[in-house]
Amino acid sequence: MATILVIDDEQSIRLLYEDALTEAGHRVFTASSGTEGMRILQEHPIDAVVLDIKLEQESGLDVLQRMVEAHPEVPVILCSAYISFQDDYTSWLAERYVVKSSDPEELIREVEKILAEKGVR
């Protein structure tokens, strides 16, 4: 079991990801903003972060930047409705990029791949 932090400003998406990842056997924290996410990262040992690229009032990329600086050991999966950012995510220092889908399979697969690479479990 790993501990995953989901940061997304949309409540329904948080609910969906929390439910799907919990079903997949993970412990899940959720945050609706970058600030909240950073606080959880400080307080809890997190194995991986699922981060929406577009948050309310702030860019997910700024949050990503802060996160990589403060917690370089925590891998981040960028998650977005945009397909066009697929070209660029590595330059932003994210580990993975997942296009949002109603089928959370891909997200769970990517999370598990990362955890396996990091030797978690």
């Binding site: 409705a81 109603s102 089928d103 959370p104």
Partner: peptide, 14 residues
Amino acid sequence: VKNPIVAIGGLARQ
């Protein structure tokens, strides 16, 4: 439009 659709579809799936 995509975020709500993803949520509707995903939650219906769950």
